[in-house]
Design a protein around this nucleic acid. Structure first.
Lengths: 282, 282
DNA sequence: TATTTCTTGTAAATTTTTTACATAAATAAA
DNA sequence: TTTATTTATGTAAAAAATTTACAAGAAATA
């Protein structure tokens, strides 16, 4: 019994259920939280059926028995609702808004994790590994992401640069060689200047990897689109968690490249690390 | 029964338990996943005690009975074990390392969320609101965090700057007024140049908010320390999730400031948004 | 309408948990 | 050290909960 989608299974199975079993299903879906603390008699009574019917229902949805069913239900309920996109209100306590920020970030990350197109990630990693130069373009909040990415890839012995200035982007774009890669980062997916830069990159024979929401002009215009949909209240505050999702995707790309580049990189990183330690105390 | 910390409760209660009850506790902590599918007889037998002892143990950790205990345990296990700090290996598939990166990031965020000192966050928010100028200092990976933060606070109508150059930091630091705030960001907490800048800030009467691991020189040297412990395999790859935790903390600070600044900010943000839209297509 | 099949509930059996109590162990007092 | 008292633990019985077997009732088909 996969607990992750029990309620889903119940909904799906609904059509195959007998009338009285369906009563149980409906009650469970209506009050799943109450059910996990119930005994079989309570559930039978509240659903208006007999106890054996409840057992039959449990078996019908793939569980071994009533206890097994309750356990699976409890697990599902415990696993999902903790996070979520909750709007911060102006009356929230420090504790509340701290939790909300972290939880909605976590929520975004989990959603993005499950919606990433892996084949595009693989294509992106391959393209980066083949490139002579890798550059990161982004404006506004995405500029910080671009610089973070540049820093990260630089450490992987990849010639990389980050530009948040449209003129620099354009100049650099026109000097790219065939096979070079530009990673265009945008939270909105609609930044005109970035689209312009991307066009120049493609004219130079460069490959554009786009990090942007799905269906946006930037995602469509990219050679390889890594679509990141982090719905959030973009109106009220600056992009909150979407740029964090972008950073996580950059991490994934970096890991992918590091893996492909193999173990000779390990030695290089060790060296870098020891070089840095001289700048640190203790 | 709060399921979120049952195993924590067990660990805490351990000292008050009788010898045989402790056997149960140890077994549960050793094999929590197995326990949720066990009957009381199995658990009693495997822990080497009698069934009533198991019941007494359940009551001792705050549950109503054995079933209640199993339910709470199941809920806790369902909510946590999916994440965790798992090292990426060189044989991982794209799917695997993608999940690992996201999951360990989520894990870090949840840990940091629960370990933040709220009173220090509040103090930091208050200090930022009182400051004439707010500046962000960081090197390396933290430089990107600093720029992100600058961008974020700039949108909140706060005069802010970000410097990742020690000379610029020093020049700016000496020109600060009493009450101005510098947020010093460091993943390692040991960067010598950052410590030097912090010293200058304090000499100018500025307040230093430190974002760094607990107990590190930077955390200790800061006027307000926001300690962020994101243990990770810092050796092999660049700081992966700790900078994301830093960004999340910046978000929290920004929300806190926005809340304090009140609703007149809303109008300003609306305006900003409409200004940006002219740079976008569609 | 009669027959068959399917559905559902009653009641019994089984399993599982909990309680009551007795014994053993440990601690404290003499 | 010995004895009394308290505390801890297990045995066995009781209670509670779940599951099975079966029969009655409803629905469907001939």
């Amino acid at each position: 019994m996969k607990p992750a989608q029990l309620t889903q299974t119940i909904s799906d199975t609904m059509v195959d259920l007998r009338k009285s079993e369906r009563k149980v299903a409906e009650f469970v879906l209506k009050e799943p939280l109450g059910v996990i603390r119930m005994r079989i008699v309570d559930l039978a009574q509240q659903a208006g059926v007999s106890e054996p019917t409840v057992v039959r229902f449990c078996r019908a949805v793939g569980c071994h028995g009533f206890q097994d069913f309750k356990l699976a239900l409890a697990q599902q309920l415990a696993s999902s609702p903790s996070y979520g996109q909750i709007a911060v209100t102006d009356k929230d306590s420090t504790r509340e808004y701290t939790h909300k920020v972290f939880d909605s970030t976590v929520d975004t990350l989990l959603k993005v994790r499950d919606s990433l197109a892996l084949e595009n990630l693989e294509a992106a990693v391959a393209a980066i590994c083949n490139a002579q130069r890798v550059e990161f373009y982004g404006f506004g909040a995405s500029a910080a992401v671009a610089f973070d990415a540049q820093h990260k890839f630089f450490r992987l012995q990849i010639t990389s640069a980050a530009y948040s200035d449209p003129h620099l982007q354009n100049m650099s774009a026109t000097s790219l060689q065939t096979g070079d890669v530009v990673i265009a980062i945008s939270q909105s997916g609609r930044t005109q200047a970035l689209l312009d830069s991307m066009e120049l990159v493609k004219q130079s024979g460069g490959i554009v990897i786009g990090l942007a929401p799905s269906g946006t002009p930037i995602a469509r215009s990219a050679n390889i689109a890594i679509e990141i949909d982090a719905k959030e209240d973009i109106q009220i505050y600056t992009p909150l968690s979407s740029r964090i999702a972008h950073l996580a995707v950059i991490d994934v790309l970096a890991i992918g490249v590091a893996q492909k580049k193999g173990p000779q990189l390990q030695a290089h990183l060790q060296q870098l690390q020891s070089g840095l330690s001289s700048l640190r105390v203790g």
